[in-house]
Design a protein around this nucleic acid. Sequence first.
DNA 1: ACTACATATGATATCTCTTTCATATGAAAA
DNA 2: TTTTCATATGAAAGAGATATCATATGTAGT
Lengths: 102, 102
Amino acid sequence: MKNNSYLFFKVLSTELRAKIIDLLYQKPRTVSQITKELQTDQSKISHNLQKLSLCNIVNSKRKGKTKIYSLNKKTILPILDLVNKHFCTLCIKECKAKEEYK
Amino acid sequence: MKNNSYLFFKVLSTELRAKIIDLLYQKPRTVSQITKELQTDQSKISHNLQKLSLCNIVNSKRKGKTKIYSLNKKTILPILDLVNKHFCTLCIKECKAKEEYK
DNA sequence: ACTACATATGATATCTCTTTCATATGAAAA
DNA sequence: TTTTCATATGAAAGAGATATCATATGTAGT
């Protein structure tokens, strides 16, 4: 695995950030929109957006008082597609099954 | 992001497991071979192999006293290729740069 | 310049994952 | 069937990440 790509995976590895990515996949949103839709608090969202941002998974631009975050689709979509369409259905089913069985 | 695919990323998200994957990418290996090559202890390797195994990232078969682990290439290679060849070089460079700058 | 709203940031508490240590299980050989 | 080597596993310790809370910064309107 190339040098530090595990860092990239780490950023993709929490439920909250997955949910944020899902929202931004639909359309760009402001911090407060995301906060409201995920029914959590603003600071948490900002912290997590920053991590996504550091790995270029999301982009942002100011618009007045707000800041609009969008998914860097060119970067992230191929990998999500691959994971979602191909092995992951199978793979995670297994995962879950085994975990539940535990 | 599909249901629980973030769990899959989580398993790929540590340096040690990345190193294990690298070794198994070259060729299948026993637990003690991996342990020796990574100069760490056996229990740690076993624990981590188990996680990789739960997500079908690696397979294993007994051979006498030993157990040979191999990379489930069909499952994992496409995603690694994608990450390594395309955006990740760029992406992680950025990551690192920003982290170091901090 | 002051106020209000939106977002970011730093410090610490909390939580989760990984490592460690001791021990158990499994397999082969004597 | 006992001994030895290889691997697995459970519990507790340790490390690392995330959430929370308080506060700072940024922007616009007045």
